[in-house]
Design a protein around this nucleic acid. Structure first.
Length: 425
RNA sequence: GGAGAGGUGGCUGAGUGGUCGAAAGCGGCGGAUUGCUAAUCCGUUGUACGGAAAAUUAUCUGUACCCGGGGUUCAAAUCCCCGCCUCUCCGCCA
């Protein structure tokens, strides 16, 4: 949520930001400014009435008998007027709030113009795209041959876009996750295993709702939602709190299973482990001071951490600066890491590093007190550290050998009992 | 799932209809004292939104907030209803 002062002082900046993101918000902004004016006026008038009511109320407390009864009768009228104001103000503030939740964050100037992911701008590439001198298999063929992946078995149990990891496939996933978590712990992150089924508030606070309801599994009976990322519970962890500046930054490595309905993606990426309803992810979450430069530094930091992980796994990747149209509502800027996937003959998105300024903090009421005693909204950021099994696509395909075996990346071998290869049984 | 107790400021905890933004203690901050530290004493100590004054660290003032949402009343932390959460006992259970 934006500071409403930005809308008051510079509505065109907000509208322009919406256009860059291809999330038009002209109407919402105008509507908010209109509601805001009305609200101010009503609030001022009703507060004056309340002041009078409180003052007289104190007098009534000291009176007795007829005098008291007369006063009470007189105040009945004021009480009625106050009620009338409340009746008008209530729905107005609700509408104002819900409109504010729809206004997108303003993208940074460094965000390139563009409409879709095709307009994202290449920042850098790392690693050599592998050349094979034998006909390659995709991860699913490899997985089925080596008895690592079972899609049909999963479909029987759970329907489309599900999977079963077996044997070394299961071990490989755990290895990747644990290696990554350890890497982040070494970097100073606190590992966090968090609830995956949460209330509405964290979903709204992190800006997945309203708007993203279609993408989330809802447990309606209990009015709870399955998270699509541990960003949700981890970022919301300190909601409603005022942290001490000395306790910032907070670096968290959230680990959780993630659930996504993939609504609107019917028919897309239907083969294999690329687009599935459930996966596991280690996520970096940063809560820091309200400072553009600091935010920017942490953005680079979490991006670098993720790159280190991919590099350690020996996977070629590229970093792209995500264009306006491919940016979500809450982000200021986003960098994606796309990792090479031979079967796609291209890079596939595996990581996404976002910075939000205080957009999420305002919704979450996540603040800190500075040395001088002043209270500010924090800045928040997050980035994937690793998401599996999607990353297994690259690992299995890139490390396949002519004889059908798959080489296990060096850094994972110790997590898999020291083995170097996954081979046929 | 059944029965009971409870949710008050950073923390502990008082407050059962009016002068309560809320006692007291702890903690924090400022000051005094002090070779240093500790102890002691004095003062101060929430957030949001608005107004006035001053203008770029201050001040005065109004309103709201005592888990959340409704209600009763001239007046609600205090009474009533709904929800959420915590604790205890019983049952069930990975």
């Amino acid at each position: 949520m934006l500071n409403i002062n930005i809308l008051r002082e510079n509505p065109d900046l907000v509208k322009e930001g919406g256009r860059k993101k291809h999330i038009p918000c002209d109407e919402a902004v105008d509507c908010i400014l209109d509601l805001d004016e009305k609200r101010k006026k009503l609030l001022f008038e009703s507060e004056e009435l309340r002041a009078a009511q409180k003052k007289v109320g104190k007098e009534i407390a000291t009176l007795e008998g007829d005098e008291k009864q007369a006063m009470i009768a007189e105040m009945g009228e004021i009480a009625g007027r106050i009620k009338a104001y409340e009746k008008e103000l209530g729905p107005l503030e609700e509408e104002l709030e819900s409109q504010m939740l729809l206004v997108p964050n303003i993208p940074a100037p460094e965000v390139p113009d563009g409409k879709t992911d095709e307009d994202n701008v290449l920042v850098r590439e790392w690693g050599e795209v592998p050349q094979f001198d034998f006909p390659i298999k995709d991860h699913l063929e490899i997985g089925e041959e080596l008895d690592l992946i079972d899609m049909k078995g999963a479909a029987k149990l759970a329907g489309s876009r599900t999977y079963i990891l077996k044997n070394e496939g299961a071990l490989l996933e755990l290895a990747v996750l644990q290696f990554t978590l350890n890497h982040l712990v070494e970097k100073g992150f606190s590992p966090m295993l968090v609830p995956t089924l949460v209330r509405r508030e964290p979903m709204v606070g992190t800006a997945y709702f309203p708007g993203g309801e279609e993408q989330a599994y809802a447990c309606e009976r209990d009015r709870k939602y399955l998270i699509g990322t541990s960003e949700v519970p981890v970022t919301a962890y300190h909601s409603g709190e005022i942290l001490a500046e000395a306790d910032l930054p907070r670096l968290y490595a959230g680990y959780s299973t993630c659930y996504r309905r993939e609504a609107g993606a019917a028919g897309r990426d239907t083969r294999g482990l690329y687009r599935i309803h459930q996966f596991n992810k280690v996520e970096q979450v940063v809560v820091c001071r309200n400072d553009d430069e600091e935010s920017l530094r942490f953005h680079e930091f979490i991006l670098a951490n993720a790159e280190e992980v991919v590099q350690a796994l020996e996977l070629p990747y590229r970093v792209v600066n995500v264009c306006g149209g491919d940016l979500g509502q809450p982000q200021i800027q986003k960098f994606d890491i796309e990792t090479w996937m031979p079967s796609r003959d291209s890079y596939g998105e595996t990581h996404s590093a976002s910075r939000f300024h205080d957009f999420q903090s305002r919704r979450l009421d996540l603040r800190y007190r500075d040395e001088a005693g002043k209270v500010h909204f924090c800045h928040t950021l997050n980035n994937t550290a690793i998401a599996s099994p999607r990353i297994l696509i690259s690992i299995l395909e890139i490390n396949q050998e002519a004889d059908g075996r798959v080489r296990i990346p060096d850094v994972l071998q110790s997590y898999m009992g020291g083995r170097e290869y996954i081979g046929p049984k």
